[in-house]
Design a protein around this nucleic acid. Structure first.
Lengths: 194, 194, 194, 194
DNA sequence: TATGAATGAGCCTTCATTCAT
DNA sequence: TATGAATGAAGGCTCATTCAT
């Protein structure tokens, strides 16, 4: 009962973890196996190829986070609430390594073009969720007219990815935290524009 | 005078080109040598290691672009002019592959931690240039008070990197172009806030 | 009675088929299991090892074909009849893949020396059958005196194996068919020599 | 001066030797490197792939043997002389392992279909040489009319390949030698038929 | 009887790097 | 300055085989 498909999940976790703190180029089957403490051949037994494993790891984190986002954002009605919720979720993402894995997969897709369409496909739900949420909150406000929700969603996701890259490079999150705090402080101003 | 260090520059170019369209994980000494049409061992003769070459390539593009940015922005006094200039420069960056190389180096620094501090060091001038320019243009305007130039600079660079990742993944720049056009259209609004 | 050892035979068939059209070096337990649609471990459950399975597959086809040859040749009294019968049987062999499997096992025995004595043992009945048949038909004719039946039998089997190799390589049987037709046409000449 | 292209030839020799006494399925890059006493990666440095190396080894022995055959057969005018020469050349082939390598490559081409057309291409010169020689010696004799030289050539090559397989399996050449001696004794008879 | 999971060894190939020339 | 040759380590992946169930 407790852990059906235990090994498969173990591999998925190990792949995710490796991607997170060793990065795409170092996420080799050997590295994943070592991290997870299992035999290297199991990667291929369960997933067939490294590409498939990496994409499965992306799916795994995507699903987990998407449902968290959806659940949390469903209750957020005002811009204020959305800001607060998003800040918390984003914090969780960083904590869990989700954004890092996503950005590593995107960056890695340049070296491995076969991954690109698959990775892109997995980004779409985020763009849609972001757009829908903005639509609901901003509606037909002047701000949404100046910058359509579709474009704003794109900007936010871009920012989100870039922020992760830099944060990782810096090794600490102080500067990103500072920026986030500033942005949150802007919310009343933004709310005023509605 | 004729062509001092001709080969060295050739290698630099080849490394840059490879990073740009094959990505960090595929930027091997062999790939670079093949692209540039020279002997693989020359990489080590001139640069000592792949890490050093990659960083040198980053320096190379950084210097070129930084001086272009500095020259162009020096003349931009108003927010309007900065917007116009930045849009043109950014377009050049995308055209030349500069942003791609930067983001690949940043993403690759996760797999190769020795690169991280070096890569980070090479990002600082951009953050500074961005901040100084904002400072000059926004000065003590209300906008700069709500969002300090330092934070705004950080946000802009983040966005700039993330945008490149997604654009590369999508394979075409339509969506990024659209967003950029929208942002430019916001300038009068921003100017009004000053 | 119904289907004793159904699975065992299924494995045998799959091994035979795999040997026939993938060849010795590609006749892996996985390939056999996939071809037969059963679990890979069954190979070892029923046969203990791949070597044993391959030899069993050789036995299987050998037995089937040997009894067919014996039955058919028993009725052939004259050289004429032997020629006709052998041509038909040989055609069946090629159709069924028998010769291919035999030659693949022989060739593969170089890479896997443990197989060699076992494979050789399984070739003896053919040499004997061939010799006995020749003996019966050629008897003490001048031809048999010039080329003893034992040697002629050896020559025929050699030819038979080599012909299969080349035919397989060419991908079509046109040239072998042509040669066979020519040889059959020689029969009156040979009969005349008796 | 002494050994230009030394290593390349060393690899070729090692590949040939491995093919000869370990067989196709065991002719791995490691096995070849170990046999030749060089680094495994050199195989790929010089030949790019195992397939390419194996084919190069086939070329190597083919060229050596073909020129020996051509030189020797050029002087053979009568059937008698051809018989004597061929017997000597064939003996050399067996001594040097040439036939074994050829038959292993042919047999192995079943497992590795990409090799098949290349291997086949390398068999053509033999069929042609054999046919031309027969043509020259048998001319328009009754024997050549009963069994066209083209077909006879095909038969001889088939026999040649099959004989090698069986000989290898038996581990000693006694029986093949015996057969060969018998065939040579038939020459006066064949000459009589001209 | 049958199977899914697991493993250690080995496969071909590519890596960054060194070195003699 | 430049190169071809060479290497040990590591890459993804498949192998025959075992074992608990």
């Amino acid at each position: 009962m407790q852990a059906p498909d235990g090994t498969r999940n173990q591999i998925l976790r190990a792949a995710f973890d490796t991607l997170e703190d060793k990065g795409f180029a170092a996420a080799t089957s050997r590295a994943v196996a070592e991290r997870g403490g299992f035999n290297q051949a199991l990667v291929f037994y369960y997933f067939g190829s490294m590409d498939a494993l990496l994409l499965a790891a992306l799916d795994w984190t995507n699903e987990r986070r998407l449902s968290a986002y959806r659940a949390a954002l469903a209750d957020a009605k005002t811009l204020d609430e959305v800001f607060a919720t998003a800040a918390r979720l984003f914090e969780e993402d960083r904590e869990s390594g989700h954004v890092t894995v996503v950005s590593q997969m995107i960056a890695g897709s340049v070296a491995r073009p076969e991954l690109a369409p698959e990775t892109l496909k997995r980004m779409q739900p985020w763009l849609e969720l972001c757009e829908q949420t903005l639509e609901r909150v901003l509606g037909t406000s002047p701000l949404a007219q100046a910058l359509p929700t579709r474009d704003l969603a794109y900007a936010i996701v871009n920012f989100y990815l870039g922020a992760n890259l830099l944060t990782h490079l810096e090794g600490d999150r102080a500067r990103a935290d500072e920026l986030l705090a500033r942005l949150r402080a802007l919310e009343p101003l933004a709310s005023g524009l509605l």
